[in-house]
Design a protein around this nucleic acid. Sequence first.
DNA 1: CCAGACGTTGAGCGT
DNA 2: CACGCTCAACGTCTG
Length: 664
Amino acid sequence: MDNIHNILWRGTSFIPSFRIKNRHSVGFFKKLRVLDFNLIDKYYDMKSGSTSNNIVLYWHRTDLRLHDSPALHAALALKPSTFIPVWTWDPHYVYRARVGPNRWRFLFECQNDLSKSYTKLNSKQKLWLVREDPQTVLPKLWKKWGITHLVFEKDTDPYARERDEAVVRLAEEAGIEVVIRMGRNLFDPDDLVRKNGGKPTMSMTQTEKAAEKINNGQPDRPVETPKSIPDPWEKDRMDLSDIEHEIADPTPDLNAAHRGTKDKQYTQIMGPNNDFSVPTMGEIGIDPSLATTPHRGGESVALKMLADYTADEEYIGTFEKPKTSPAAFEPQSTTLLSPHLHFGSLSIRKYWWDVQDIMTKRRKAKKTNASVPVNLPGQLLFRDMYFAAQAAIGAPFARTHGNKVARVIDWHLQSKPLQSSRNDEDAMEDDDGDLPARDYEIDSLEAEEWFQSWKIGRTGFPWIDALMRQLRSEGWIHHLGRHSVACFLTRGGCYVSWERGAEVFEELLIDHETASNAGNWMWLSCTAFFAQFYRCYSPIAFGKKWDPNGDFIRRYVPELANFDKKFIYEPWKAPIADQKKWGCRVTNDDNAVDGTTYPKPMFDFDKQRQICLDNMKRAYDVRLHGNDEQVLDGSWKKLFEENGGGEEPKKKKQKTGQKEEEEA
DNA sequence: CCAGACGTTGAGCGT
DNA sequence: CACGCTCAACGTCTG
C-alpha cells in the first residue's frame, strides 16, 4: 500500500517539498494546526503570483461539491488562466459496479446541482462531463486543452487507486503536474493505517488512538468555498468533435437487468446534444419511474439539511445512535446525510466541525452531550475506521477470499473462487475488488430460495420484509434495520454468505460505500470486527421493541395494514377468520401479489437460529481466515467436514503454538 | 502471563 | 419506562 501511496504523491514534484512532508515538521508552518493546508496553498499562491499560465483540469470524482474541497481549493490556488472541471463517465462504475435506479438518479442530481453552482459563479462554466474511460480520455483532454495541471481528491478505494496510479503515470509522461488532496474522510485512511502500526483498524479503540496521533483526533477545519471560478476555453476549443472516441465495452453489464430501453450513454463523447451534459435516466436505458426514492441529491440539498439539523442543538448534542429508532419514517430518526457523504455533496469535515462546535458550546454551558462512539462525531469516525481497514487490506476487504481479517465460515451460497489464474499475488494486486461479477455456488436450493425471498421482501417475517421493501423503494434504511436484515440473512437465520447480502446492498443503497458496506456486513455476520454471535436479532422481538403498533410494517407491507397489533409481527398466528376480516390471507398456496395474500414465514426462526448458533460455534473452532492457505487453494471445506463430525475442536492454545512455529 | 473489563446499538425476564 | 441480571460464552484491551 505504501508503494501505491508514494506513486500517488510522486506526481506532485512541482510542489515545494514541505508540502509532502509531515506537516508538523515544516519550518514556520510548524505551529499551524488545523488550517495549515489552506494557508500553505495561499502561501504558494502568493509566490506564484496572479499572472500564471496554469491551465488546470479539475477531475471531480468523490467530491460533487464546491464547499470545503481541499483539492478544488488547491486547484484554484494555482490561479489558473483556464480552469476546466470535468467528470469522466467511467465505464467501470457504469457497468461493473452494481447501481440501481435510485442511486443513478441521486448521482445525476448531485452532478446537475454542482454544474449549476459553477454556472452561478461563472456563466461560462459548468461541470464538463466527458463520456469515456478516464484512462483513455484524460490524455486526449490534456492535449486538446493544453492542460498543465491535473488536480483531484484522493480516493483510497482499491479500484480508484489502481486507476489513479495509471492516470498519474500517464500525466508524468505527458509532463502534466498532478496535485492530490485528501478530502473524502476525516483523516487520510493511509495515515490512520500508519498510525495504527501499518495494520487495519479493527476497533474503534484502535481508530481513536490512531486519530489521536494525527492531530489530537481533530480533523482539518473546512477550507473556504470559492467565490469565483476562472473561465474555461472558448466554445470552439472546448469542442471535442475532432477527438477519436472510444466507446465503452458494455460487457459484462451488472446493471443490465434495470435497462428497459436502449443504452445510449456512450454514443457521443460530449453526450447526445454535444454539450457535455449530465446523462439522463433515459440515456442510460433506465425508466425514470423506477427511481422511487424520496431522498434527493445535490450539494445545495445537503447543506440545507445540515443547517436544519444543526439549528436543533438539543438533537445534535444528545444524539445517540443506539437510541434512534429503525422503525421511524417521515421523518426518519437519523440525518439521512450518508448518501451526501458518499457522493461528496457534503464534506465530512464540515459535518464534523459544525456538530463539534455545537457540542463544545453545550459543554461550556454544562449541558449534557452523548460521547464517542455513539454520538454524531463518533458515527463519522466509524466511517473512517472502515476506510482505514479497507486501505490496509485492499481489494480483498470486500470479500472473504484473500482477506486476512475475515473469518471463514461455511455459509450457504458462497462466492465461487476467483479464477485460478488470478490467485497469484500479482493478480491479487491488480484486483480492483469488485470485478468480475462473481458467481456463487448454489449448494442448497432451500438457501437460494430464502435468499431470493429476502431480496424482494417476501420472507413471511413482516419486520424483515418491511425493511427490505423500504430498501428497494427508497434506497435507504436505518442502520439498525440493516443490522436486523443482515443478521437474518447470515448468522441469525438463513446462514447465507454475507457477500450475497453485500451485493444486494451495493445495488440498492443510495449511500453505498464499499468500505462501510463490506465492513458492516462482516461485522453483522461475525466475520470480522465483531464476534458475539450469540447476540442475535429476532425478526419479531426487535421491531416490536421500537414499534409495538407495527406502523412501520403497515407502511411498507400494506397488505398487513389492517392486522391487529397483536399479530402484525407474526401474522401466521392470526385466526383465519381474522385474516379474512383484515383482507389478507397468510398462505403460500396463492402466488398473487395483489395485496390479498402474504407468505407464511419461510422457516421456524427459533429452530433456524439454533442451527446457525451451532454452525457458528463450529466455524469459530476451525479458526480459519480468508488469507489462510487452505482458503486460497480451496481445500478449506475439508476442515469443516472434519470438525463437523463431532470431533474435538482444535484448542486455541494449540493453534497459537502452531502459529509461532510457522513464524519461527 | 493472566484475570477481568470491555466492546456502537440482543432477548427475555425480573425489579 | 429504565435498569439489571442471565443466557452461554466471542476477541481484544488493560492493569
